[in-house]
Amino acid sequence: MNNHQKNRIIDLTFKVYGFLFTAISVLILFILLYAIIKAGYSRINWDFLTGLPSRKPENAGIYTAIMGTFYIMVVTLIISIPVGVGAGIYLEEYAKKNGLTNFLEINISNLAGVPSIIYGLLGLGVFVRFFGFGGSILSGALTLSLLILPVIIVATREAIKAVPSSLRDASFAMGASKWQTIQYVVLPTSFGGILTGIILALSRAIGETAPLIVVGAMAYVPFAPKSLFDTFSVLPMQIFTWTTRPQTGFAVAASGAIIILLLITFIMNGIAVYFRNKWQKQLQ
């Protein structure tokens, strides 16, 4: 076998490997989905969605967990959108290119790499204990807000960067002030990109478990939360507590809850992709 044939065989072998690895990765995704749906679909019904958690797996529902997730997400959005988008606007439109800005940028990219459980410790030390908010909706939402802040800031900056500078110039040339330009030209034009980033950040926050465990999410909450200072559980927390129970009934309940969680996650990602495509077309 000459050298040339050898090279061709190596090339083909790698091609086969590459295809197999890619295919297997996607296959595993389908196996995961299939296994979980098969195990949990029998629990998906109205009683499961509206039922309270129970010591008996066959009666256990996810109502309080879903409500907890809902409240946490609403509060998280109220906090993180103005702060994240505001910081993104500041860095892109106001900040001068100097050492401080450079430091801010490095810091944000570093924060994006901090493990989520560390944010949990931050929330525990600052919100739960120092401010005395306890293991409440407020503590959880503040913690998650800080966690997703880097994602929203980066997405906002990318979206603003994509706004053609000619639009800005036109606004300034008509005598608009800086904020007016941002308000009437920059933000409307970059809205799609920012929205995409926010939805993706939210979809990540919905699946987060570890930081909320540390902040004090409860394994068992008999009532839906009514105020910011109520204790809470969230959907992934409910899944986690059920996976740690030995009875097989809880594994079934966990699978059911996972189906709901994945459904929410996928729908949000789908919406984000839809907005991203629509926005990118609009920009062109």
């Binding site: 996607v26 595993i28 996928f266």
Partner: peptide
């Protein structure tokens, strides 16, 4: 065709992966 599936793989909450590891 393949890239969205890889993105989904990255979007699955880790608690789901944990359950998948233990139960399957």
């Amino acid at each position: 065709l393949i890239k969205p599936f890889l993105e989904i793989l990255a979007a699955i909450p880790t608690v789901v992966y944990g359950f998948f590891a233990l139960a399957f």
